[in-house]
């Protein structure tokens, strides 16, 4: 197991290296950054001066090493648009996105797993049908519409929650509901189908044949096997929620990473875009590595052998 984790971490390290190289290269993919910074009215001399000032005249590998080294120390350079450190801009925004993402993920998981199990216990039964309706509507209703309707009904008509912003914690309630409702259907359905497969298996019959009560068969024998696909899906979903939803953040006027990424793209604020892409990629690498490790802890067959 320790060996397995070390192997996974080593792989993750190399993936991170590749990812950082790609996001660094993005800077140069859209043309000469010095000319971009100089702007449409810039002269050749300006561009040349900028090139020296920003260090674009150095060999590319030196620039890359320098950028990685700084990034490791939390320094992603200066925002071209705001002219303040990128880390400061991201630091101001990331809290909202992380809070929203983690809470929405937790809510989705807490609802999806028990509901998926209950649905699998009696396929096509009442709970299964209701869960299916919930899943289909969750997948079919666009979050921007659901968000707007929630604001109109609970914010404007009833006045139970703030209409927008996150000054009070109540401001998170509607975005969390809308975002978790978006993440819920897939997790619920994968729990259900995994559980149906496992409940039909011989080892579940064997567990019943041993005289174990149903709750021990389900929680002790079945669930462990049924959640394996859920773990991989949940890692991706969590990545999605933590990377910030442009739609949700726009509808609820939240200053999170999703909006920052979108705005920075429109402003061609490349250092910010670069930093966000790097952070999100690292987040995904971390989450998939974590999912692999969790799955290996659940299923010993995944631990052994080759990579």
């Amino acid at each position: 197991m320790t060996l397995f984790i070390l192997k996974r971490l080593l792989i993750a390290f190399f993936v991170c290296l590749a990812v950082s190289a790609i996001s660094f290269a993005l800077m140069f993919l859209s043309g000469d950054p010095a000319i971009a910074i100089a702007g449409s009215g810039g002269r050749a001399e300006d561009a040349a001066a900028i090139r020296v000032a920003y260090g674009f005249d150095r060999p590319i590998l030196v620039q890359y090493a320098d950028w990685v080294w700084s990034a490791l120390h939390g320094d992603f350079g200066q925002s071209i648009y705001f002219n303040i450190p990128v880390s400061e801009i991201i630091g101001n925004r990331i809290g909202v996105t992380l809070t929203l993402g983690f809470v929405a993920f937790a809510v989705a998981l807490i609802v999806a797993v028990p509901l998926g199990i209950a649905a699998a216990m009696r396929p096509n039964g009442l709970i299964d049908r209701l869960a299916l309706i919930l899943a289909v509507t969750g997948q079919a209703i666009p979050s921007f519409w659901l968000g707007l309707m929630a604001i109109v009904v609970f914010g404007a008509w009833y006045g139970w929650v703030p209409i927008s912003g996150t000054e009070e914690w109540q401001g998170y309630i509607l975005p969390v509901i809308v975002l978790s409702y978006y993440a819920l259907p897939a997790m619920m359905r994968i729990t259900r189908s995994g559980m149906i497969d496992v409940l039909a298996s011989d080892y579940v019959r064997a567990a019943y044949a041993k005289g174990l009560p149903a709750h021990r068969v389900i929680w002790g024998h079945a669930l462990r096997n049924a959640v394996l696909p859920l773990v991989s899906l949940a890692a991706v979903q969590l990545g999605l929620l933590l990377s910030g939803s442009i739609v949700i953040e726009s509808v609820f006027a939240l200053n999170g990473m999703g909006r920052l990424a979108w705005e920075s793209l429109l402003r061609s604020d490349l250092p910010v875009v670069q930093a966000i892409i790097l952070l999100l990629s690292l987040l995904y690498v971390a989450l998939t590595t974590l999912a692999d490790i969790v799955n290996a802890m659940l299923d010993p067959r995944l631990r052994g052998g080759s990579i």
């Binding site: 064997a206 005289g211 010993p300």
Partner: peptide
């Protein structure tokens, strides 16, 4: 039957690979 299963009577299945839980 639930009380008798596993105590007074037990069962052996056809495919031992499928009848043992792979994760325990």
């Amino acid at each position: 039957l639930r009380k008798l299963r596993g105590t007074r009577m037990a069962m052996i299945f056809q495919d031992p690979t499928a009848a043992l839980n792979p994760t325990l």
